[in-house]
């Protein structure tokens, strides 16, 4: 009983804190919190692929960026309403995922990582090179935020909008992970051949995980385009993909909570440390190395170890 109550209380407390946040913090930090939430969703979407299906992607920025660019192009080039562009962006991200998945799933391990990287770089080079459509590396400023009867133009209202969308997305992800489908994915991660022998269609499960993962990354990307009112090729670049990978590993792959914490922590640290010292890159690097040495399973892994050690005493 006790074991079931505490996570519930914890979840309620976190939710209450998230809802009360704009009353507690200055607007700048509400904006920072919005960014932390967006990247938490981005990291969780990658973890569906990396942590649950066991497929390490170094091209996740492709789906994030394609969704963001879809919004910018529809709003700025086609004059489509910003709110209507949102579902279109998610569909675009899922379609790119559905196109890339058959190519990437031909390989495993490091080759999977490199193929996803290669495909994402192709998308990036289109956004970077096709100046007449995308403005190249200048990016596209002036993306408007959607209007659903009330304005999302101030920091607080956009924070609540993002919180609601990300909350729903996170619940869906939890439901997916807990479902028979999610369990089958974990089985495939542990042993493809065994699951095959049990009658599971391994490829179809991996394909579905890939497309779902792209879809959820698309939600994060679309929100980020609204949040910054801007898209640029860096949304699609390998640095963004690598950062998502680092967020998942830092937090702990194979749980949804870990990557969310990892993402929030990295976004916060980048902001916080860069306000203290211009050598924040150095500090982050040292933190990554220390985390690897002392918590190779990520922060969640550290916590699990701690719990187990206490239980043994």
């Amino acid at each position: 009983m006790k074991a079931r109550v505490w996570p519930f209380i914890g979840a309620v407390a976190v939710l209450a804190l998230l809802i009360a946040l704009p009353d507690i913090l200055r607007p700048y930090y509400v904006g920072l919190a919005t960014r932390m939430l967006i990247f938490a969703l981005f990291a969780m979407s990658l973890d569906l692929l990396l942590g649950y299906a066991g497929l390490a992607s170094l091209g996740h920025a492709a789906y994030f960026g394609v969704a963001a660019y879809t919004i910018a192009l529809l709003v700025l080039r086609a004059g489509v309403d910003s709110g209507i562009a949102f579902p279109a962006a998610l569909v675009a991200a899922a379609i790119i995922g559905a196109l890339f998945a058959p190519l990437a799933l031909r390989a495993r391990g490091s080759y999977f990582l490199m193929i996803t990287f290669a495909l994402a770089q192709v998308v990036w080079s289109v956004a970077f090179g096709w100046r007449s459509l995308t403005n190249g590396d200048d990016g596209m400023p002036g993306v408007t935020r959607p209007y659903f009867g009330w304005s999302l133009d101030n920091t607080t209202s956009f924070y609540y909008f993002a919180l609601a969308v990300i909350g729903i997305a996170a619940l869906l992800l939890f439901a997916i992970v807990k479902s028979p489908f999610g369990r089958a994915l974990r089985g495939i991660r542990e042993s493809e051949s065994r699951m095959q022998a049990l009658g599971y269609n391994v490829w179809r499960h991996q394909y579905a995980a890939f497309v779902l993962s792209a879809f959820f990354a698309g939600i994060a990307g679309a929100l980020y385009a609204y949040f910054n009112r801007f898209v640029g090729p860096e949304y699609l670049y390998v640095v963004q993909s690598a950062e998502a990978l680092i967020m998942v590993i830092l937090g702990g792959a194979g749980t949804l909570l870990g990557p969310a914490i990892g993402a929030a922590l990295i976004v916060f640290l980048e902001d916080f440390v860069s306000s203290l010292t211009e050598h924040w890159v150095l500090v982050l690097g040292v933190i990554y190395v220390l985390v690897t040495l002392f918590a190779p399973r990520g922060l969640i892994g550290l916590y699990v170890d701690f719990r187990q050690r206490r239980a043994l005493k």
């Binding site: 680092i246 890159v281 690097g285 933190i287």
Partner: peptide, 19 residues
């Protein structure tokens, strides 16, 4: 162990880039 290796080499990339 791929994931810690990735994090570690990424960390060194950052450290030496800044140095």
């Amino acid at each position: 162990d791929e994931l810690p290796q990735t994090l570690l080499t990424f960390g060194f990339l950052f450290i030496f880039a800044d140095l």
